[in-house]
Write a protein that binds this DNA or RNA. Structure first.
Lengths: 117, 117
DNA sequence: ACCGGTACTTGGCGTTACTATCTAGTGGTA
DNA sequence: TACCACTAGATAGTAACGCCAAGTACCGGT
């Protein structure tokens, strides 16, 4: 599954992270740990940091540097208005593709074939 | 939506095409036309041909050359055993990612929790 | 002084979809 | 004949993304 998952994450991982940030602001290390806890055990840490740089450069998030008791200061990301708009689009696109793909899934309850449409 | 859709198609388009081939064998031009009809209007023709080359090289499909009344001969692709296994994995991975992503979607039916936001 | 955990950064790589262009066969039309 | 439209496939170059590997930096405990 590893390879397929990697490819499927392309284009969805940014939506995933933005959704997490919508729920509440967070920093990179925290996001990675959260994803791991939620079952995304194969997502590389470097991937998240690179993604955060991208969404920052696109202006989808605001950043605040917060000192940490342990380790270097955290970069806390929070979703801004542009990010919320992007996230809305994300869900639209997601709905589009999921509905179309589900239509292609073989019916679990077999139907008689030879039908058009 | 265009950009997001393009990225989301990475990793899913091969599953989409293999699902089409599972339903019945088809050739490139036919597949492209079918996708267009199903609403995937933005999928480039060259993308499909490149994808077909890839799944052929991975041994997921069998090929038969069939002369056409109009135009050059068609390369008809049909799903083989390895392709069916790959497609099974595809659906597993798809279910994994969709279930995890749906968990992140904000509740559509807002519940009465008395919070303003 | 060392190590492990926290937190972020970066360069290079492989895969994928898009764009643009090209070849090639058939049939219709000026 | 010359031209065009449709059918059918191939390919070179590009951009985007996630992964890998290695590095920097800060802190606490031993």
């Amino acid at each position: 599954m590893a390879r397929q998952l990697t490819e499927m994450l392309k284009g969805t991982l940014d939506g995933i992270v933005l959704s997490i940030l919508e729920a509440s602001p967070a920093y990179g290390y925290e996001i990675t740990a959260g994803l791991r806890k939620q079952g995304f055990t194969e997502i590389a840490e470097g991937t998240i940091y690179a993604l955060l740089v991208r969404i920052e450069q696109r202006g989808l998030v605001d950043i605040e540097k917060v000192p940490s008791e342990k380790g270097p200061p955290r970069k806390v990301y929070s979703l801004n208005t542009a990010g919320r708009e992007y996230l809305d689009e994300f869900w639209s696109t997601w709905d589009f593709i999921t509905s179309h793909i589900e239509r292609l899934r073989p019916t679990h309850t077999p139907r008689n074939n030879g039908e058009h449409r």
